[in-house]
Design a protein around this nucleic acid. Structure first.
Lengths: 229, 229
DNA sequence: CAATATCCTGAGCAAAAGCTCGCGTTTACG
DNA sequence: CGTAAACGCGAGCTTTTGCTCAGGATATTG
């Protein structure tokens, strides 16, 4: 399996080919979710998309490129979900009145628990569908450095927004808001991933998210024992 | 790549062959760590071990069996580290005077922070060497159901020991010790894995572990807001 | 020293998977 | 229409890789 370029080979011009590309991406998501990366063969993807293998290679130069396109799609979704959340944390009014998650439409920054609740909920929602696909995307897939930088950037961005929010939050008494924010991001990411990918059977997911919010809130509201360095 | 049995094909009788098996396992660890599971070919493993490919297949019926042997080795190590820790949490005197981790040799159960500190330290130590290998072992590798059950059993065992300890710990005021224990295990596992595999450059690892202990201690010492169900 | 069990070797087989390429079909456009 | 570009097709090439097997080397045993 030679390593080829990852850029698209040919841009779809007509509506017909755009549908082909769309079908290929959807099929790839299904196939990778069901069979994993190694067993998710390009022929299987093409077959599932109802497209010949030749057409697949007209728009994707390699198998990795298909997976990369899926990752980039997910990153874009994550950014779309996180940016308004960061704005909200910064004090802007809730951008969209979606899913009754936010208690009230005040113009001020949200309280500690409200913000954490929203953060965890957003993260869970982001991975709730196609958990198997995300496992492949983030555990099995080969990740080129450019992509890794992009993901790190997103995490850093989120951590920065949270750090600023923590500094402004009167309830927060943690010594080092930057470290705390990083830990919050890390924890939410980790717990979300493992919880969504390997769901625990003995408790409902809501119990886990609630407990996670409890944990983070207690941590942030308590004065740290360990001094910052 | 046909799926073969996972049991050893032949038991090594002489010292010579036992060394061969050992060399193969060590080589497999190195190759998987460097190249990942897919690119870690059996020929490469044999070559690295200084052994012919034929010899490899005398002792391992398939590529998966090699990886399984590595996982079982790691699980055994984990059990060896966790069982005495559980005993210590239950009130037994510290089993080994290793690495000055425990403050004093009292016969009583450790305090909240001491126990958490030891738990996190043990988990980090368990994954500190060969982090790349552990990534392959726990993320990339195909996991047969029997192995998955074994790992779940280990987690449950740890969670049970921690739950009992939490119940006995006077500082702990969390409503549902079982759920809390599971969350503690989950959090320590997740943070440890991601921290060891993708180390954050801007802070020393000690800062992360200390913050993690802070977080868990604050959570467990605070009365839960969310009621148990 | 046989005789036998154990161990090691490595060329090469069979299957699988990524990918190519020549050609037929459809669409855009004058 | 007619032409050219875009699109779609799929048999099969090429490479890789897990794995076998026949035969030779080494150790153990009586």
């Amino acid at each position: 399996m030679p390593t080829r370029s990852l850029r698209a080979r040919k841009q779809p011009r007509q509506a017909r080919s755009r549908e082909t590309v769309e079908a290929l991406l959807e099929a790839a998501a299904q196939v990778f979710e069901r069979h994993g990366y190694a067993a998710g063969t390009t022929n299987r993807i093409a077959a599932r998309a109802g497209v010949s293998i030749g057409s697949l290679y007209q728009y994707f130069p390699s198998k990795d490129a298909i997976l990369l396109a899926l990752v980039e799609r997910h990153v874009a979704e994550a950014e779309a979900a996180l940016v308004p959340l960061a704005r909200w944390l910064a004090g802007a009014p809730p951008p969209t009145a979606d899913a009754d998650a936010r208690p009230e439409a005040t113009g001020a920054a949200p309280s500690l628990r409200d913000g954490l609740q929203a953060l965890v909920a957003a993260m869970v929602a982001l991975h709730a569908e196609r958990p198997g696909l995300h496992r492949v995307l983030f555990e099995e897939a080969p990740r080129p450095p450019a992509l890794r930088r992009r993901l790190d950037g997103l995490s850093t961005q989120a951590a920065d927004a949270i750090a600023a929010w923590l500094r402004a939050c009167p309830e927060v008494r943690v010594a080092d808001p930057d470290l705390a924010a990083r830990l919050v991001v890390q924890t939410v990411e980790s717990i979300t991933h493992t919880l969504v990918i390997h769901p625990a059977a003995d408790r409902p997911p809501a119990a886990w998210t609630a407990a996670t919010v409890d944990m983070l809130a207690a941590y942030l509201a308590a004065a740290s024992v360990t001094v910052a360095r």
